[in-house]
Design a protein around this nucleic acid. Sequence first.
DNA 1: GCCATATTGTCAGTATACTGTCAATTAAAT
DNA 2: ATTTAATTGACAGTATACTGACAATATGGC
Lengths: 168, 168
Amino acid sequence: MPNNKPVTMDAVYTAPGYLFRRMQQIAVALFIEECKAFDLTPVQYAALIAISTHPGIDATRLSAVIAFDRSTLGNVIERLEAKEFIVRKPAPEDRRVKLLYLTKAGAAVLDEIMPSVDKAQARMLQPLKPADRKTLLALLTQLVDLNNEASRVPLRAEDALEHLGKSG
Amino acid sequence: MPNNKPVTMDAVYTAPGYLFRRMQQIAVALFIEECKAFDLTPVQYAALIAISTHPGIDATRLSAVIAFDRSTLGNVIERLEAKEFIVRKPAPEDRRVKLLYLTKAGAAVLDEIMPSVDKAQARMLQPLKPADRKTLLALLTQLVDLNNEASRVPLRAEDALEHLGKSG
DNA sequence: GCCATATTGTCAGTATACTGTCAATTAAAT
DNA sequence: ATTTAATTGACAGTATACTGACAATATGGC
């Protein structure tokens, strides 16, 4: 037997899932606003950073390093390639794989966008008191980590991927 | 002059924006998993709740009550109508407006899905200690509220909309 | 009453996200 | 070595999200 309680909007407003969705939208809006001078979305920025720190990574491993869906990432890579921020080169030892590298333009945009990204990230938490910012960030980091396996694409950090290297 | 610091993945992993995105994806995954018996997404659920608590609301005001984009909501409403969980009726006093009402099936699915939604919401925070759950939820609620105007579609709760009533 | 303005729903275009599938290719089993 | 498995990038289909535009309709100033 289901419930008989009157339904109010609190069923939505106080649900963590709703708050996470809302906060994510706010985060994207702030990122776009701060970084509108650069032709980069938050997802594209994360992908660029990962390619920058892992030159020659392939799409599947990139997906694990930033925890983005492999299908989605295909389109992201396409757009980054169209903007000439990255190049795709076929891997010599495995003809299925295409390796990803930053171009000069990609490295440049990454270098230049950093201050704006930092500003956007700061603005997201700015309304809170400094101590609360720290607390929230710590709890959020913890929660994302502990819920890692609950997402379709769990994060597999660099270390966990090294043994998958082609010539290891 | 931009920076010269070596870029690591921490530029991504520790950014609040990245953590919010990740947590939102986890939240959706848990919702879908718990509610797979019901043909409802998180967004559709929120819309249904709002229509349930505001029978005869129109799409624009619905968008303000759940803080979802008006364009996006059009498609959501379409799908809810296709599933016959809601109906759209033209407003008699304003021929631009279409009023939204729950169907019997819509009310039924809302009633039945509640326990699963609650379970999903609980699972999102479960990895944290109970005290930490409270803290995170409180800070998150605060942050979303204080950042309300930063999002493209700020939340306008019921109260703020009452004076817009047709026959007020 | 007429005209500038605002509102409403809709649509086209772009960008995440996820599910499921597929061909090509590689690796593993025996 | 040949069959079987798994992996890789790609694709089709669905569902959010946002931008910008549009026609139909209402509303306000005058």
